[in-house]
């Protein structure tokens, strides 16, 4: 057995793809929900003046929405390991002569692919809406951020899935951890103007993702340089994927 069994990785990836394409409701909501946020928040807050806002609110909001869409989607894939646990399919995978690393890699790639697909759709919609992109390099850098966000969130999802026995705790984590972190990440409003919020943001992993994506994509209103953000996000990503693999490896069925 090889550590990286390409066939096994492919199977895991393909399975995610089929699930995603076949689950029409997931396909629709995953695109509609961020658009709701974009349009409703965007048009609602566009008219009010926000301290610290340097660009049109819609432009400011766009990177935040992309981050949110990728985060939710990837996390869902990580957590979907729980489904496999509950429906017993995980056992079938674990008795197969393939390494656990292959299973994790396949799943992570699958989750990242679907998340990026959604991210790109929103990116295109934003472009159509006329959000001014900073530069070609900026867009490439933004794509790098999107990939990193996707992998980080899959890793985080894996941690949750390995630690939880069922779905009871899922809404709790969503409402008490993810949503507050997202609100404090500058995804929806600038945090730079208030020093306490800014200090909190520095302890928030989502902040570096949103800030980096914003810096790359529109080149305005970012607190840190995208280069600094990306370095931090890479570290977070490695930690999350590492922990996710570790816990997944350790979990018994």
């Amino acid at each position: 057995m090889k550590t990286f069994d390409l066939q096994a990785i492919y199977v895991m990836w393909l399975r995610q793809m089929k699930h995603f394409v076949r689950s029409k409701s997931r396909l629709v909501t995953s695109i509609i929900q961020p658009l709701f946020f974009l349009f409703i928040l965007g048009s609602g807050f566009r008219t009010i003046s926000m301290p610290g806002l340097e660009v049109d609110y819609l432009y400011f909001l766009s990177p935040g929405i992309i981050t949110m869409a990728i985060l939710f989607s990837s996390m869902f894939t990580g957590i979907s390991v729980l489904w496999d646990k509950q429906f017993g399919f995980l056992q079938e995978v674990l008795v197969a002569p393939i390494s656990r690393i292959s299973i994790i890699v396949g799943r992570t790639l699958g989750g990242a692919t679907t998340a990026l697909f959604q991210g790109f759709i929103i990116l295109i919609i934003i472009a159509v809406l006329g959000v001014p992109f900073s530069s070609v390099i900026g867009i490439l850098s933004a794509i790098a951020f999107m990939v990193l966000i996707a992998f980080t969130a899959v890793g985080f999802g894996l941690i949750i899935a390995s630690k939880m026995q069922d779905f009871q705790g899922f809404p709790l984590i969503m409402n008490l951890v993810i949503m507050p972190l997202l609100f404090l990440s500058s995804a929806f409003f600038p945090v730079g103007s208030q020093s306490t919020l800014q200090t909190i943001a520095f302890f928030n992993p989502f902040f570096y993702m949103v800030d980096g994506l914003r810096g790359s994509l529109i080149g305005k209103n970012n607190v840190l340089l995208p280069q600094i953000d990306i370095a931090i996000v890479i570290v977070i990503c490695i930690i999350m994927i590492g922990l996710g693999s570790y816990f997944f490896n350790k979990s018994e069925v």
Binding site: R15, R22, S23, F87, G88, F89, L90, Q91
Partner: peptide, 14 residues
């Protein structure tokens, strides 16, 4: 080995 588990271990979406 081949295994048939006590609880179904199929992917129902496939």
């Amino acid at each position: 080995i081949g295994v048939v588990f006590q609880e179904p271990a199929l992917d129902i979406e496939l």
